[in-house]
Simulated scan of single mutants.
Amino acid sequence: MLSDDTLDALERDVTACDDARAALEDALDAAAAAEAPTDAHYTAIATALRNWQAAQQRYMDTVAASEASDAPTAGLLLKTKTGTDPANARRGLPGASVDGADQPFDMDLTGTRGQLLTTALTDYLPALSEQPPQK
């Protein structure tokens, strides 16, 4: 059983992961639609990925501090008790892995979107890692 405080914390972390995923989708769409992606496009992609990674790490830290035995158990209890689906909090992120994130990354990264993400990961994410993530 998870305490109400733990459930609330997990829900906040899941919401942050969901928001970061939406921001990543939006950033990839905007960059793909641009005639020539700019630094701002790549920074937006890297920032969304960094924010997702940070929220995912908070989720895993909350799980580790909880009464749950592991992330799958915590996710099941969260979904059962609150209806909140922790899928995005448990997805493996390309280039930004978090221990315990064991679900497949399910975003379409074919073609231009994959190239945009790769460039953001290799050229922009490292610089962001020195800054605190946005909340």
Rank of each mutant, 00 (worst) to 15 (best):
T122F: 04
A65V: 15
S66D: 09
R113A: 15
D39V: 06
G111T: 09
E25M: 02
A127R: 04
D18T: 15
T122C: 03
Q103P: 04
Q56R: 11
A64K: 06
D5C: 09
K135H: 11
D39K: 12
I45C: 10
A44E: 01
D29F: 00
G95E: 01
T6W: 08
A40W: 14
K79L: 03
P86N: 13
A32L: 13
A16R: 15
Y124F: 13
S97V: 13
L78R: 03
S129M: 12
A68F: 00
W52Q: 13
S3T: 01
Q103K: 11
D85I: 02
L7E: 01
E130H: 12
D26R: 08
D85V: 04
T112K: 14
T119C: 06
A31F: 10
E25Y: 02
T80D: 12
G111C: 08
L128R: 12
Q56F: 10
H41Q: 02
L78Q: 06
T43H: 09
A71T: 08
E35S: 15
D70Y: 04
D19N: 09
T47P: 00
R50K: 03
L109Y: 01
K79S: 08
D85P: 02
G92Q: 05
Y124G: 10
I45T: 06
A71D: 11
I45H: 01
K81C: 02
L128M: 15
G100R: 04
A31I: 07
L10G: 03
V63M: 07
I45D: 01
K135W: 13
V63L: 06
G75R: 14
G95A: 13
A22Q: 12
A34S: 09
D29N: 01
A120E: 07
L128T: 11
K135F: 14
P86K: 13
H41N: 02
T43D: 11
P104C: 13
A87Q: 09
S69P: 10
T43A: 12
T122V: 09
T112I: 15
R91K: 14
T118A: 07
L28M: 13
G83W: 02
D13G: 05
A20R: 04
P94G: 06
A31C: 09
L28Q: 13
A46N: 00
T84P: 08
L109R: 06
A20V: 04
R113K: 07
A30I: 12
P37A: 02
T38H: 07
L116F: 06
A44H: 01
Q53D: 00
T47A: 05
P72W: 15
T82C: 09
S66G: 04
A55V: 10
D19G: 14
P104H: 08
R91F: 09
A23E: 00
A120R: 05
V63G: 07
M1R: 01
A36S: 05
V14R: 12
S3L: 03
D4V: 00
E130K: 11
E67A: 13
D123Y: 10
A71I: 02
K81Y: 07
A96D: 12
S129Q: 10
A71F: 02
P126E: 07
Y59S: 06
D19F: 08
T119M: 06
Q53W: 05
S3G: 08
T110V: 12
G83V: 04
D19A: 08
A65G: 15
P132A: 07
R58M: 03
E11R: 11
T122N: 11
F105K: 15
A32S: 11
A48N: 10
L2A: 11
A55I: 15
V14Q: 07
L10A: 01
L49D: 05
G114M: 13
D4G: 00
L28T: 02
